[in-house]
Design a protein around this nucleic acid. Sequence first.
DNA 1: TATTGTTATACTCTATAACTATA
DNA 2: TATAGTTATAGAGTATAACAATA
Lengths: 162, 162
Amino acid sequence: MRKPRRARTASFRQTATNDESGDLSSPLANSPGFLLRLAQLRTFDEFYRSFAGLGVTPAGFSVLALIAANPGVRPGTIGEELRMKPSNVAALVNMLAAAGYVQRKTDASEMRASLLHITEAGAEAWREMEQIHRETDARLMEHLTSTEREWFVALLRKFLRR
Amino acid sequence: MRKPRRARTASFRQTATNDESGDLSSPLANSPGFLLRLAQLRTFDEFYRSFAGLGVTPAGFSVLALIAANPGVRPGTIGEELRMKPSNVAALVNMLAAAGYVQRKTDASEMRASLLHITEAGAEAWREMEQIHRETDARLMEHLTSTEREWFVALLRKFLRR
DNA sequence: TATTGTTATACTCTATAACTATA
DNA sequence: TATAGTTATAGAGTATAACAATA
């Protein structure tokens, strides 16, 4: 359920346009798509560093977060929110259920749907993870000023709006 | 060498803090790590949409870009720059070589190293891809004003600096 | 017949290990 | 012995297909 993450260091110094320290020309150094890819790699690295030993992946963490904040939420809703396929949501819920963090119930008025609830153990684990996650995000952003952080999040949100 | 990408729609409307349109509470809606993850998913979706039929993945594209811009570059340098393991760089170079886009030569003064060069066919393919990539990035950013775009890229670069 | 969800499985990407050749 | 690169392979994540149950 875990995943090691390690890689030779990457670096993108900022110069007028693209190049790197030595003499390497990086034609993608200003490509938002490429930069987002590297940014997410860094994000996962930090996640695994913080959550080592907790037995959760980023995906599992995000599913648990949604269930904790929305008791009775349905798998389909989680999939839309997190852009996961229904089958993969089910697999993650299975793992969370096996860990004793989550329970499936069935909606009396909609017998097809299953309603996801967090258990007491799940709520406790979530409280701990929430704290670690806050610290992880803080570490991710530590090179930015507080104004830059606000802009960064706001721009990411606008980037995602459709 | 391709990869389909499709998912049920995700949406994060912006409100004061976190919630979603209906009534879903999204505790991660302001988490940079989570937002970066979604942003990259969108990036890959757009990439595959644009490059459908061209037989390149984002990774292969980025390797070709570096070789095109840096004739004689070495696999190790590419790995550092793109945060790929040496073994995976080799596999991608194999694919690009099989496509006739890239050639391996050996450095006379460093017989261990292999120097990567783009072929004529590769250069031509790259010119086409470069154009498509520019359009893809433009589409990605179309919801942002030009000031926001500059900020977004600048902040991503700063976020990645170490 | 369409929708919701689950299981099973195939495919792709990334990481690790073993190996060759050169320094 | 350490470094650069490659091959082979295992593991994790994601997608597709088939199915059951309900609407």
